[in-house]
Write a protein that binds this DNA or RNA. Structure first.
Length: 648
RNA sequence: GCUGUAGUAGCUCAGUGGUAGAGCGCGUCAUUGGUAAUGACGAGGUCGGGAGUUCAAUCCUCCCCUACAGCACCA
C-alpha cells in the first residue's frame, strides 16, 4: 500500500498508509485524542473523521473545543436528527434540504398538514430521544442510479431532483443516523450522542419556496438554534431577548417617535419626537451634501405615465407603482399618472433643461426625494421597509472616465457620515452583471472593475454578489445590520447609462459633439425611514446627544424650585439645547424613571440647594451617579454637545 | 404575493356561547418628596371590519383588513 505524508499544525509530518481516516490518525497520536476528536481540517477543508485520505495533506484534528467546527457539526447533525424525528412522527412527510445557518440550522419539509408551535415541542422531545440512543453516524458513497432509485422507491421526489442537479463527477454521500439516512455532503459527528442534548432549541416554523423559487412548492421550514453547550444556548437566547428590547418599533412607541396604522400600511406618522430626529438628520445631510459639491433640487410627486413609459418604469416596474387616475367628472381631462417610485427620471428632466457642456460634469444633483412604491404586503417591516419614504437621493451625471473617481469620492463621503452617526460595522457589497442585462461584456468588465477599484482606493474591502446587479449596470450596496442581525441595504451606488439614453440626456463634449453622460444613482442613508430605524436599533434608543429628540429635562424636586427650573430651561434653549421643564407634582424618583425610560440623555434635577447656589444636579442616561455643577458650565458644555459633528 | 401565527382600554395582556377584567398610563384630590414607580378615588372598550350559524356571538364558521416570523420581491 502506498504511503502518504500528513503535516500537522505544528509543522511535523508523519507517514501513513494511503486511505487512512482522520479517526485512525487521531488514534495513532493518543487514545484521549481519538476519543475527543470530532472532525479534521484536511488541506483547508472540513473533513469527516471517517473519510479516507489518499494524498499528502495538511491535517488538523478538531475537538468540541473548536467552536467553528464543533458548531457546524452539531448544527448539521441536528438538521438530520430533526428530519429523522419529523419522519418518525409523521412518516408521510417528505424531506428536502437542511443547511447550517448562522447560530443554527433549518430543514424544509413537504407535508400536507401544517406544523404547529406545539409540534415543535413534540419534535424536540423526539430529537432528544434520538440523541440519547447514541446511534452511529455512517457515510456511504452511492452510485447515482442507486440513489435515485432508492429515493424514487421511498417517494422522495425532492431528493431525486437534488441528485439530478449534482454534477456527475461528484461522489454522492449518504449519511446514516442510525436507520435513518439522508443525502449529504457532510461532514458529521460519529454518533448522535455527541450532540449536546441541551444545547439546541427549535425556534419557529415558516413557509419557504422549494429551491427559493416562488413558482414552486411552498414547503414548511423549521428553524433551530444550536451551540456546543447549554450555557452558550442560554447566552444566545438572552441576547435575542435583549435585542428585542432594541426593536425600533418598540422604542418608537416608548420614545413617542412615530406610529403606523391600518389606513396607511407601510407609511409613517411621525410624532414631534421622531420628526425631530428626522429633520436634524436632514439638516445635517443637507449641509454635508452642499459641502460635497451637490446642488439640491426638488421634483414632482405625481407624474404623467408618458414619462414612466419613456423611462421604462411603466413596463417593468408598474406593479410596484401607485397609479393615480384622475376622475373625469372632477377633472377637465382624464389623465393617468403615477406617484414617483424613484427620482431618477425627474432628475434627468432637470439635467435636460438647457445645454450642458463637458465643463458641467461631473454634475452632482441631490434631492430629498419622497417616493412611493407599492411594496408587497409581506415585505413591509416597521419603518425599515415601507411604501412611502424619502431618499437622500442623488444622481451624478458624469463621463465614463469620471466614474471611478466619483465612486471613490462618494464612498469617502458616505464613510465619514456613517462614522459621525456612530456606525463602525458596515459592509460593502458589489453586485455584478445579472443574466438579463443590456450592454456588452466589455463594458460590464470595465464598470465592475471601476467600482471595485474605487472601493479599494477608498480603503474598503467588499463582498461580491454574483449576478445581483441591475440590468443596466453594476452596483455597490452599503449594508448595515439591525438589532437581531438582519442586513439592510442603506447606501447604494449604481452605474447607469440606460436612463440617460432613454431620456435623451446629453452634453456637448470638448470636440463640439453631443455625448451621452453616465448617471450614478447614489444614496447615502438610503431612506430616512430605514436609516432612522437602524439608527434607533444601533443605539438602543440612546441616540447621540445632537440627534436626541429630547435632550434635557429639567426636573424640580420641590415646587419652590419651579421658577428656577423655567429659568434653566430658557437659558438652555437660548443656547441651542432642546430642554423642557418637568415641574409636575411628582417625586424626583418618578421623574427620573419616566425620563430614563423615555431615553432622555440628560436630566437636570433642581431643589432648594441648586436654587440657592445657581447649580444643577446632572444625571446622564444610564449612569447612576450624579454631579452638581454650575449652571453656566453645564450650559456651555451641553451647547457644544448639541452641535452636530460637522459644525463643531 | 406565499406559508404560518395573531388582533380585547393609549400600552402590555387575562378572559367567557348569556353584551368584559388586571397592571401601567390618563384625570381629580391629598402628599413638597434628593435620583428608576407616593397614596386614594375616577373616567375609559359596541372585544380589527363584514357576513353567517344561534333564542343569544368578543368567543363557533366563512370572507376581508392589518400586524408579526420566514420565504419570494427589493431600479
Amino acid at each position: 500500500m502506498a504511503s502518504i505524508s500528513l503535516t500537522f499544525p505544528d509543522g511535523n509530518a508523519r507517514e501513513y498508509d494511503a486511505g487512512i481516516t482522520a479517526a485512525a490518525v487521531a488514534e495513532s497520536i493518543s487514545k484521549s485524542l481519538a476519543k475527543k476528536a470530532i472532525s479534521a481540517t484536511v488541506n483547508g477543508e472540513h473533513w469527516d473523521l471517517q473519510w479516507p485520505i489518499n494524498e499528502n495533506a495538511t491535517i488538523a484534528l478538531h475537538t468540541m473545543q473548536d467552536d467553528v467546527q464543533a458548531n457546524e457539526l452539531v448544527r448539521h447533525d441536528l438538521a438530520h436528527i430533526m428530519a429523522r424525528a419529523v419522519q418518525e412522527i409523521w412518516p408521510d412527510t417528505k424531506v428536502t434540504i437542511g443547511p447550517v445557518i448562522k447560530n443554527g440550522w433549518y430543514y424544509d419539509f413537504d407535508r400536507k398538514e401544517s406544523f404547529t408551535p406545539e409540534d415543535l415541542i413534540t419534535i424536540e422531545k423526539k430529537m432528544k430521544e434520538i440523541i440519547n440512543k447514541r446511534d452511529a453516524v455512517r457515510t456511504e458513497v452511492w452510485e447515482r442510479d442507486v440513489a435515485i432509485k432508492y429515493y424514487e422507491d421511498r417517494g422522495e421526489p425532492y431528493k431525486v431532483e437534488l441528485i439530478e442537479g449534482i454534477p456527475g463527477d461528484e461522489p454522492l454521500r449518504m449519511y446514516w443516523h442510525g436507520e435513518w439516512q439522508d443525502l449529504c455532503r457532510g461532514p458529521h459527528l460519529q454518533h448522535t450522542g455527541q450532540v449536546p442534548g441541551d444545547g439546541f432549541k427549535l425556534m419557529s416554523i415558516a413557509g419557504a419556496y422549494w429551491r427559493g423559487d416562488s413558482d414552486r412548492e411552498m414547503l414548511q421550514r423549521i428553524y433551530g438554534v444550536a451551540f456546543t453547550g447549554k450555557e452558550k444556548l442560554k447566552a444566545h437566547l438572552n441576547m435575542l431577548e435583549e435585542a428585542a428590547k432594541r426593536d425600533h418599533r418598540k422604542l418608537g412607541r416608548e420614545m413617542d417617535l412615530f406610529h403606523m396604522q391600518e389606513e396607511a400600511p407601510g407609511q409613517v406618522f411621525w410624532h414631534p419626537n421622531g420628526w425631530r430626529i428626522y429633520t436634524e438628520l436632514q439638516d445635517y445631510m443637507r449641509r454635508r451634501q452642499r459641502a460635497g459639491g451637490y446642488v439640491e433640487v426638488n421634483t414632482p410627486q405625481v407624474v404623467n405615465r408618458q414619462l414612466w413609459e419613456k423611462s421604462g418604469h411603466w413596463e417593468s416596474y408598474q406593479e410596484n407603482m401607485f397609479i393615480v387616475e384622475v376622475d373625469e367628472d372632477h377633472a377637465r381631462e382624464k389623465t393617468v399618472n403615477a406617484l414617483k417610485p424613484m427620482n431618477c427620471p425627474c432628475h434627468v428632466q432637470v439635467f435636460n433643461q438647457g445645454m450642458k457642456s463637458y465643463r458641467d460634469l461631473p454634475l452632482r444633483m441631490a434631492e430629498f426625494g419622497s417616493c412611493n412604491r407599492y411594496e408587497p404586503s409581506g415585505a413591509l417591516h416597521g419603518i425599515m421597509r415601507v411604501r412611502g419614504f424619502t431618499q437622500d437621493d442623488g444622481h451624478i451625471f458624469c463621463t465614463e472616465e469620471q466614474i471611478e473617481t466619483e465612486t471613490k469620492i462618494f464612498i469617502e463621503f458616505l464613510s465619514e457620515i456613517y462614522a459621525e452617526l456612530g456606525f463602525t460595522n458596515w459592509a460593502i457589497k458589489l453586485s455584478t452583471r445579472p443574466e438579463k442585462r443590456i450592454g456588452s461584456d466589455a463594458i460590464w468588465d470595465q464598470l465592475e472593475t471601476s467600482l471595485g477599484n474605487a472601493c479599494k482606493a477608498a480603503g474598503y474591502e467588499y463582498d461580491i454578489q454574483e449576478g445581483e446587479g441591475a440590468f443596466y449596470g453594476p452596483k455597490l450596496e452599503f449594508v448595515l445590520t439591525d438589532a437581531i442581525g438582519r442586513d439592510w441595504q442603506c447606501g447604494t451606488l449604481q452605474v447607469d447609462s440606460n436612463m440617460p439614453e432613454r431620456l435623451d440626456a446629453s452634453y456637448v463634449g470638448q470636440d463640439g459633439n453631443k455625448h451621452q453622460p453616465f448617471m450614478l444613482h447614489r444614496a447615502t442613508l438610503g431612506s430616512f425611514e430605514r436609516f432612522i430605524g437602524i439608527l434607533i436599533e444601533e443605539h438602543a434608543g440612546k441616540l447621540p446627544f445632537w440627534l436626541a429628540p429630547r435632550q434635557v429635562v429639567v426636573a424640580s424636586i420641590i415646587s419652590d424650585a419651579d421658577d428656577y427650573v423655567h429659568e434653566v430651561v430658557a437659558a438652555l434653549n437660548a443656547s441651542g439645547v432642546r430642554a423642557e421643564a418637568d415641574v409636575r407634582n411628582e417625586k424626583i424618583n418618578y421623574k427620573v424613571r419616566e425620563h430614563s425610560v423615555g431615553k432622555v440623555p440628560v436630566i437636570l434635577a433642581v431643589g432648594a440647594r441648586e436654587v440657592e447656589e445657581r447649580t444643577v444636579t446632572v444625571r446622564r442616561l444610564g449612569e447612576k451617579q450624579t454631579s452638581v455643577q454650575a449652571l453656566d458650565d453645564v450650559k456651555a458644555a451641553l451647547a457644544v454637545e448639541s452641535t452636530p459633528p460637522d459644525l463643531r
